[in-house]
Nucleic acid binder design. Structure first.
Length: 566
RNA sequence: GUGCCCGUAGCUCAGCUGGAUAGAGUGUUUGACUACGAAUCAAAAGGUCGCAGGUUCGAAUCCUGCCGGGCACGCCA
């Protein structure tokens, strides 16, 4: 619990006068009961029971007697071994709704990261391959982490470390020489490159000589062979153009497009630095850094033919990034399958004396599989992101045509809803879990989904169009069961963001938004707003305006739009 | 083979870093559009939290072992 509101602070203050524990400890122990009927906060008395050698229930009962009356609290009661705090509902409503409406877009943010920079490496698709849904995960998790850290006050640097260098380009050049067609390439560049890539791997199984050809061409590329460079440049340009189109559809932006090739000129310096630290050794013709003492396989920096590897470039990139930004954190949003690789990379940096390696963190996520199998670009069993987006948007378009045919700007709203559903489907679960791609799930817009949250938002907007919230209203009227539940959940937004940032798990924000939308939907069905008696109506308008604001702020942290109508 | 990760309702998943009767969604059954948008709400039914030990006042959560699944393990990225 790194963020406390004034109510929590007051409870800690009151308790620290009564209990032989440090405020920090009380803060730690303070918990949220399973449901609101048990109160807003609870203090378990088990630890005190040991100190006082008395039953926890007895201690709770004694404490309940001693806690002085406080305007922020409605009551404090002992319930078994717990001391339960019920907040003053009127004060909670005034404070929470007032704060949201005053801070607007700023509500939920904090400044814990003030003055610190976080570098986020995400998306990083392999150019020369179509953008599959595998890269989607890195893209949307990274995008959300960017926004969450920004909300926590960090200066964020988003880098798209595109895979525009490496042996794969040797493969592509080789394949192009064998089966490439300039006309087809001009007409449908991405598809043609994909076909070449798949064909290369199919044929290479029968003819291992192709792999040698590929390694050769990559070596030539690194040595600056004009023909190789020209082809590489061409493949890179057309792939980049395609990528930008996909990012626009997704609504994702980067501060830097420093791909692997960006670091080419610096790589010799890196290898020299490794050598100077006495780490570089030759083994079976390749140049490596041994990590035997760490219980890991060695890290390869140069192949037998002298060409560089992924690790060489990543090492270079890390050093460049630290020298450029002096980051407080560097996050690598990359799949779990590369866990060992990152441990190796960080171990080498550490051996080189780069103390800042402690600030580097691999943010892993589970694999996407399709019908039980791992998706593989090589085998061509890839699902194209573009197709997934089109299907999701198409589904949204259909539903709009059916339910809201007069909606203006239908195409854009369909994009917001369809893409939102896709993003939310991914971010709402713990990123470490593998996901089974299913079209059913992509097409399902009911239940715990982005459209559910967007729908709540749109309904609020619809009410507010009929009667805008007014500045003057009596928020202390918001004390019935549903209003209270809604106010309580609104007050927890800052904590949800803080937790998401701390753990680098956007799912905490996603889950939180479901709670808010669900609580709003209940309220909506039980409590009339427009037809309520005048004072209550004013207060409820303010309440739903606050809900609208929190939903919009939260969706934006996930990279999801909040349309006013849908 | 070794290491890391995962295993909660038919299915997909939450479970706030050890606490109060294990929660949602989906699917099934049923009810609600003559109140502000039914992409909604309400209700029923559904679980030996993989198995076995251990630590603890207290374990889905921590430790150990086993079972099942995934991933990784030198010239790909």
């Amino acid at each position: 619990m790194i963020v406390m509101n004034i109510f929590q602070e007051q409870i800690v203050r009151l308790l620290s006068d009564l209990v032989p524990l440090e405020p920090e400890q009380i803060k730690e122990d303070l918990e949220i009961p399973p449901n609101l009927e048990l109160g807003n906060y609870a203090f378990p008395c088990f630890k005190l029971a040991k100190v006082h050698k008395a039953a926890p229930g007895l201690i709770a009962a004694r404490l309940a007697e001693k806690v002085p009356a406080d305007p922020l609290l409605e009551k404090v009661v002992a319930n078994g071994p717990y001391l339960n705090f019920f907040l003053n509902k009127a004060r909670l409503a005034q404070h929470t709704v007032g704060e949201v409406l005053q801070q607007k877009e700023e509500y939920g943010k904090s400044d814990v990261g003030k003055g610190r920079t976080v570098v986020i490496d995400f998306s990083a698709p392999n150019i020369a391959k179509p953008f599959g849904i595998g890269h989607l995960r890195s893209t949307i998790i990274g995008n959300s982490l960017y926004k969450i850290h920004a909300a926590l006050g960090y200066k964020c640097i988003g880098i798209n470390y595109i895979g525009d260098w490496g042996t794969q380009f040797g493969k592509l050049i080789t394949a192009y020489h064998h089966w490439g067609d300039e006309a087809v390439l001009a007409q449908n560049p991405i598809n043609h490159l994909y076909e070449l890539y798949v064909r290369f791997h199919r044929e290479a199984e029968l003819d291992p000589g192709l792999e040698d050809g590929a390694r050769n061409w990559f070596k030539k590329l690194e040595d600056g062979d004009p023909h190789a460079v020209e082809l590489w440049q061409h493949f890179r340009d057309i792939s980049l153009a395609e990528l930008k189109r996909v990012y626009a559809r997704l609504g994702v932006k980067f501060d830097y497009w420093h791909g692997e090739s960006f670091y080419n000129e610096m790589m010799e310096d890196t290898i020299k630095a490794v050598e100077e630290s006495g780490l570089l050794e030759q083994s079976q013709g390749a140049w490596i850094v041994s990590l035997e003492d760490e219980g890991m396989p060695p890290c390869l920096l140069r192949k037998q033919d002298g060409a560089t590897l992924y690790a060489t470039r990543d090492l270079t990139a890390a050093i460049y990034r630290y020298n450029t930004w002096q980051f407080a954190k560097a996050l690598y949003v990359v799949g779990v399958d590369q866990t060992l690789y990152f441990r190796q990379l960080f171990a080498v940096l550490k051996k080189m004396g780069m103390q800042w390696v402690e600030r580097c963190q691999h943010i892993p996520f589970g694999m996407i599989r399709f019908e039980g199998g791992k998706m593989s670009t090589r085998q061509g069993s890839l699902i194209f992101l573009d197709d997934v987006l089109s299907e999701a948007i198409g589904r949204a378009r259909e539903i709009i045509a059916e339910k809201n045919p007069c909606l203006p700007d239908q195409e854009e709203v369909a994009r917001q809803v369809g893409v939102g559903a896709l993003i939310f489907g991914d971010l709402s679960n713990d990123r470490i879990k593998d996901v089974d791609f299913s079209w059913d799930q992509v097409m399902d817009f009911s239940g715990e989904t982005a459209p559910y949250i967007q729908y709540a938002h749109a309904r609020i907007c619809s009410i507010l169009r009929k009667a805008p919230a007014e500045a003057e209203c009596n928020l202390s009227l918001l004390v019935n069961e549903h209003e209270y539940a809604l106010v309580s959940v609104l007050s927890k937004f800052p904590e949800a963001i803080a937790r998401a940032g701390e753990t680098c798990k956007p799912s905490f924000v996603a889950r939180y938004l479901i709670d808010v939308a669900k609580e709003f939907s209940r309220f909506y069905h039980q409590c009339p707003v427009l037809n309520a008696e005048s004072d209550v109506r004013g207060a409820r308008l303010a309440l739903i305006d606050a809900v609208r604001q929190v939903l919009a702020n939260g969706l934006s942290l996930l990279g999801i739009a909040a349309p006013e109508e849908m």
